[in-house]
Design a binder for these strands. Structure first.
Lengths: 111, 111
DNA sequence: TATACACTCAACCAAATGGTTGAATGAAAG
DNA sequence: CTTTCATTCAACCATTTGGTTGAGTGTATA
């Protein structure tokens, strides 16, 4: 399984840093959507949505499939896994923090 | 425990989308560093590092403490936990994918 | 007290981002 | 074959980003 290089992470995290794009991901997590179906709930022009999809595609977060005059967009969770893998390095830190906090609270209750 | 709103996630993911900033986070994960210590291994001006730190601070990924003429920067892993919490929604998707792949491979081996 | 050190601020710059409009392309339906 | 629907492209625009330089502000130290 190939690990993401720094440039991949740049594109993945950049793609996730926009609320419209995160909203699109939630939408297609439920299943394939055409581009017009994706655009419908968003108050943006078609062209704007098209650009957002390109950003998501560049980060390999989505895939496309042609179906007649439609394009069906689907989630590609592999790329998200790369973001998760990067974050996992830091999990120990927030876990330590929480444990330290827990200790502190317990010490307060029975000193 | 307060959950991150959309605007928080914008700032967190944006902060993570830059290799210099991710490198700074790795550095201070090992312990507090002064700003000059952070700057040393990076081939950038002091002012540039100062700006990156401001981006990380805005995302609440780091904290500052004054120590004489130094400023000590430390990791604040809570914010990262918010990114992780957002991603966790998608974990089921990549897990499903991997299981489907595993199934496929196993079926190949013993058809 | 003068001088070095550790930064921050302001001004500037080029490139990228996120949006728009309007024209262009390509498939499907009348 | 014309029209309509689904989408992209090109041009444009304002704002943000990531960097620079050079001056300014504290805090130590000789």
């Amino acid at each position: 399984m190939a690990t993401a290089d720094s440039y991949d992470l740049d594109r993945i995290f950049h793609a996730l840093a926009d609320p419209t794009r995160r909203s699109i991901l939630r939408q297609i997590a439920e299943g394939e959507h055409s581009i017009s179906a994706i655009a419908r709930p968003h108050d943006l022009t078609f062209a704007a949505i098209s650009k957002h999809l390109k950003v998501l595609e560049r980060a390999r977060l989505i895939g496309r499939r042609k179906d007649g005059s439609f394009q069906m967009i689907s989630l590609n969770p592999e790329a998200l896994k790369n973001a998760d893998r990067w974050l996992s390095y830091y999990q120990k830190f927030w876990n330590l923090r929480l444990e330290a906090l827990k200790d502190l609270l317990e010490r307060k209750e029975r000193p």
